[in-house]
Simulated assay, not measured.
Amino acid sequence: MPVESDEELASILSQETIAVVGCSATPGKDAHEIPKYMREHGYEVVPVNPYAEEVFGREAYDSLAEVEAEIDIVDVFRPSEEVSGIVDEVLERDDVDTVWLQLGIRDAEAGARVEESGRRFVQDHCLKVEHGRLVA
């Protein structure tokens, strides 16, 4: 079952490094503004977007496989149809604790695979909203 409890969401939000798949270089887009908010609140944000060279003055990676840094949370700003492939990349890594799907993004089957691997799965929740509600 996807994470729903405030206690577990707060636990996830106590981590430091967030890889944002679909992170946008375009101000005003949720995929830019939400990672920007998280950066402003002390999180290390790693942009993953094959169509951007950099976001927030940081190199944007083409895929999760290219990210050398340790990742705690993978935050997804891509359509639900793409989640399964992103989860495939997550399962190739040992460091990711949580896969977080933003509002409107759902994939129960991919979520079950995440949970079967011993990791946490959040879907259809906004990282910024939950941070503001539980942490800020």
Rank of each mutant, 00 (worst) to 15 (best):
F56L: 07
G57C: 06
G57F: 09
E59C: 00
E59G: 00
Y61Q: 03
Y61T: 02
D62K: 05
D62G: 10
D62T: 01
S63D: 11
S63I: 01
L64H: 05
L64N: 06
E66V: 02
E66N: 12
V67Y: 13
V67N: 14
V67W: 12
V67S: 14
E68I: 01
E68T: 04
E68C: 01
A69Q: 15
A69T: 13
A69F: 03
E70M: 00
I71V: 14
D72T: 10
D72L: 09
D72S: 11
I73Q: 05
I73E: 05
I73R: 04
I73Y: 04
V74T: 06
V74P: 11
V74L: 04
D75A: 03
D75F: 01
D75W: 02
D75Y: 07
V76L: 12
V76N: 11
V76S: 09
V76F: 06
R78M: 11
P79S: 09
P79H: 13
P79A: 08
P79I: 03
P79Y: 10
E81H: 08
E81A: 08
E81C: 01
E82D: 14
S84L: 00
G85R: 15
G85F: 05
I86H: 04
I86W: 02
V87R: 08
V87T: 10
D88T: 05
D88K: 03
D88F: 03
E89G: 05
E89T: 08
E89P: 11
V90W: 05
V90L: 10
L91G: 13
E92C: 00
E92R: 06
E92K: 08
R93N: 15
R93Y: 13
R93Q: 14
D94K: 12
D94T: 14
D94Q: 14
D95G: 03
D95Q: 02
D97A: 13
D97M: 09
D97P: 05
T98K: 02
T98L: 01
T98E: 09
T98F: 04
T98W: 08
V99W: 06
V99A: 03
W100V: 01
W100C: 02
L101W: 04
L101R: 04
Q102G: 00
Q102A: 00
L103K: 11
G104Y: 10
G104K: 02
G104V: 05
I105P: 15
I105H: 15
I105V: 15
R106T: 09
R106G: 00
R106H: 02
R106Q: 08
E109F: 03
E109M: 04
A110H: 12
G111L: 07
G111M: 08
G111P: 13
A112Y: 06
A112P: 11
A112L: 10
R113Q: 13
R113A: 14
R113W: 07
R113P: 14
R113I: 07
V114H: 11
V114T: 11
V114A: 11
V114R: 07
V114S: 11
E115T: 06
E115Y: 02
E115C: 05
E116Y: 04
